[in-house]
Design a protein around this nucleic acid. Structure first.
Lengths: 138, 138
DNA sequence: TCTTGAACCTCTAGTCGCTAGAGGATGTAG
DNA sequence: CTACATCCTCTAGCGACTAGAGGTTCAAGA
């Protein structure tokens, strides 16, 4: 079971330069190499890279992921710390959701604007500072 | 009504270097200057910078904001285009919300983990690729 | 065995949207 | 008139990639 970087890329859904970048910043260990210096990976790397991608998609910063990866190597005393990292992140996520939900509602109200009645289009007003209409003529 | 960059910064809640950066990339017009080359702003700039900040907070990219600002200068034929920019953005926002909500649920399940029962902590498993448990011993 | 060509290698530089710091000039209040 | 907060420009840095140049390796087919 030996994968090239291209195969790893496809399996883990992470672009090749990004894999090399992760290796460079120490998020991914240096893999085995062929005589000709080409990288070869195993199943463990596929799992780890999936872990990283998943965490990135969920908004964890690289530094947080590094901490999580470090902690998983000492699992017997890690749960509390993992818990703490996660809880901090949860607050951020909740905050993001709240702001995006407010945005979505605004955008939906905007999009409800009737194309044929340009004079009533609210997009600019809504994006302008609340309460102050920047384009009264619009 | 003449504001220094510091006053503008406070009123629009945008940091001074960011204001200068916006000017540099052409998002904000070059303001009037004193004899000694210090920037002086008026009420219009406060409104425009508020508009920009609001749009940035809501996740609009600088390029999209530039388009919106351009369009507001030709309001009689702009509504459709503004609408289009907004609708595209709305799709992205909805997608983000969906993914973050899924994340929030995962994180909340993780945080519900009992500290005293490390062996049941699910954080690592949830972050690992779904269905594959990276740390079966944990 | 040889050749072809896709995939790999390293390295540097660019992207976006800021942010920080150096080193010096300006403006205003006492 | 002096002190000093605030301003100026300029360069460089950040995170997390992404792109390109220029060259090498590997594996499959003839």
């Amino acid at each position: 079971m030996s994968l090239t970087i291209g195969e790893l890329s496809r399996q883990a859904q992470v672009k090749i330069p990004t894999i090399r970048y992760y290796e460079q910043i120490g998020l991914l260990a240096e893999p085995a190499r062929t005589e000709g210096q080409q990288r070869r990976y195993g199943a463990a790397e596929v799992r780890q890279l999936n872990f990283i991608r998943h965490a990135r998609e969920l908004g964890f910063e690289v530094e947080a992921i590094r901490q999580l990866l470090d902690l998983t190597r000492a699992p017997e005393r890690s749960c509390g710390e993992v818990h703490e990292i996660t809880r901090t992140h949860l607050e951020e996520v909740k905050d993001k959701i709240a702001r995006l939900t407010a945005l979505r509602d605004e955008l939906e109200a905007m999009v409800a604007c009737d194309h044929r009645k340009i004079s009533e289009c609210r997009i600019i007003e809504v994006l302008a500072d609340h309460g102050q209409c920047q384009h009264a003529q619009h």
